[in-house]
Design a protein around this nucleic acid. Structure first.
Lengths: 218, 218, 218, 218
DNA sequence: GATGAATGAGGATTCATTCAT
DNA sequence: AATGAATGAATCCTCATTCAT
């Protein structure tokens, strides 16, 4: 998917940009089949390479996987960082921007969910490595919300996770759930709708007048 | 050979019930490592068996996996069915009951998320096989909500998915996110909190007075 | 095939005659797939048994195989023995009788050819065990032929082998060659033809006037 | 991955030519033990390879087997083709040439007999694949024989099969029958004898004066 | 950078066989 | 005599990786 534009920016001319091609294919396959379910050989073949050649670009399968996640996760950090710089800026833009990014990198959300899903010490370490910076930033951004007072401290993690689930979950499961519901959840329209939905929900959770309603529910 | 009916009749005595032991172990490992990442040998060994013996109870790895999911998913259908029988009964109980079930079957939510995450035609078919009955029931249950009028038709799938994400996502990612947030998300306390959180959110989305607030947000 | 008449002689009544059923199935499968290619489980299943039960009747796979060959080969010995008792009796009947027997025991010829085909010490010993008595008798029968004088001593083995090839080969390869030639080589008609053909050839090799022609060809 | 063209161009140098070495060993073992009875591991080991390496040259066991048969069968086609080009040329040379070829390729005849022996749909298809071209050619060659008139049409297949049995059968069973008869049937002497024997028999079946004798025997 | 060939480790599964029931 | 369950050994094959070219 992403692979059709192997040299989006920069002066790189006719160079094959093999590494990027590999990353594109790997993102797609890792997202679809998970780490264990993806064969290095398949990645190489789809990238038009001999498996051995792949090792000229990445030290091993794990390093390739890391590179894929890293490449996909970095822009997310950037987005969240930008929110933090705005003073009291509107979350709304952040959500939309994040969803736009995930919409453009179809495998990324799946990859992250795969990571978060995996247990075991090894996986936990990996999850911490990429999710931690994300959560730190998201947590800081959330802390700036004016209407946060209505939530008790122990509810804050749950709020954070809610965003995680609704945003990453949407894209990660777009394939299966979309077919189930008869909708193409990755279409611009559907993404737009989900964006507005999350924003609406966000308002009801953190919005100004939400404050007034506090206490009824507990 | 055939293992789908390992103990056709007779009430389970005190026997070890090898097939069930295998299912337990398999649920745990599949949940943790996914289908591809789980070695049949590991399942067998942890169940105290020679790998070959496992094939006396299940035809192959895939059949074992299916049996695990099937076993875990059936009670969920039952819970949702019970809601449908209540006339206008409170969803609140349904959510609590569902979360209690998932809390007791530690691997199940992860398994389902693995399923939903996987792409490819094969996986989609499997996802449809188990998620479809769940969504059909959930959809019917949702349709009985009195305050549904405030949502447009195309938003209903998003509502459904929201529940999916918040409920299954919570348990599925409890390991990784819990460590990240410094909370044991599977502790009774945490489950209780998440239950109340989802209920609260449910109220704000579908609750009576939520109706009155409609229009402000759009 | 042979299994349709499980109690040909003797007072055995409604007894299942399991051992015979096993032998019938085994003959069929061993003939079709050879020793190594045949799974004990398949034999048992086709005989309506659990593989374990088979071991109540035969000590192991090899013993079963031996029993199959033994059962099939014994009548052949008998036929050849009968020829030896006749003084100067016509080979013609022997050939016809032998071919009739093989025609009725469809797997036997294949089995014997499998045996003869297999190399290795193990197989050679087996081949010797069953083929040797056959060849001893056939050799003795051949020695009684009046027109044998036209063949030199070292050609006698070749004559023997010729009969072997033409008789056993015919039935053993009836499947493949028959399909190739568009003929059902096992049909009564075809067997009749091959019988006459072998007899004709036999005449030209051993017949009375063949004697007169000796010398031209050498 | 693809191994059907392991050395597309270039004249074979002094390289060990792994693929050929594998083919040699495989021919030997398949001939001796049949397809099912031969372990890939044994082939690899005898060829001085790790079993996994074998898969760099042949896609799987069946493909290797096919390659072995193909390699051995091609020259036979060539021999038969050459006969067809000669106008009325002497079969005698054909028989001698064929027997010389089989004498040099020790496993080939056994392999072909294994093929012809195997039943089942799968095997029949394979048998057709290799035997059919052979029989087509042999049939055409036979049709050129001047003294064919003495045989009725339905006897022609039997004539063909006679050659098959006497030629391939001889080499295929040289091991077992040779030991039985106390002769080394593969020795140059023995092959020479069998060649002359088949030629003599061929004369008596198709020779000029055989024509004169027609009628007596029917 | 690319590749064909090689490999040790491990993958799922089948096999013949045993044994308690 | 029959069977379900168990097992060690062996099956074919795939995997990630290396290395000489």
């Amino acid at each position: 998917m992403n692979a059709s534009t192997p040299h989006p920016t920069g002066p790189a001319r006719s160079e094959p940009r093999t590494a990027d091609r590999i990353l594109d294919v790997a993102e797609e396959l890792f997202a679809e089949r998970g780490f264990a379910g993806t064969a290095v050989r398949d990645i190489a073949t789809r990238a038009g390479l001999n498996p051995a050649s792949l090792y000229n670009h990445f030290e091993n399968k794990q390093a390739l996987y890391d590179a894929v996640v890293e490449r996909g996760v970095r822009p997310i950090y950037a987005i969240l960082d930008r929110i933090l710089l705005d003073d009291g800026g509107p979350d709304r833009d952040a959500i939309a921007e994040l969803m736009a990014h995930l919409s453009a990198a179809p495998g990324l959300a799946r990859l992250i969910q795969h990571e978060a899903l995996a247990g075991g010490e090894h996986a936990l370490r990996l999850a911490g490595r990429w999710l931690e910076p994300m959560y730190a930033r998201a947590s800081a951004a959330l802390a700036k919300s004016p209407a946060l007072g209505q939530w008790e401290p122990h509810e804050l993690p749950l709020l954070l996770m809610t965003y995680h689930h609704l945003i990453f979950g949407h894209f990660a499961m777009a394939g299966a759930l979309g077919e189930l519901l008869g909708v193409d959840l990755l279409s611009p329209d559907a993404v737009e709708r989900q964006t507005r939905f999350v924003e609406k929900l966000s308002e009801r959770l953190l919005g100004a007048d939400a404050d007034a309603r506090r206490g009824d529910s507990a």
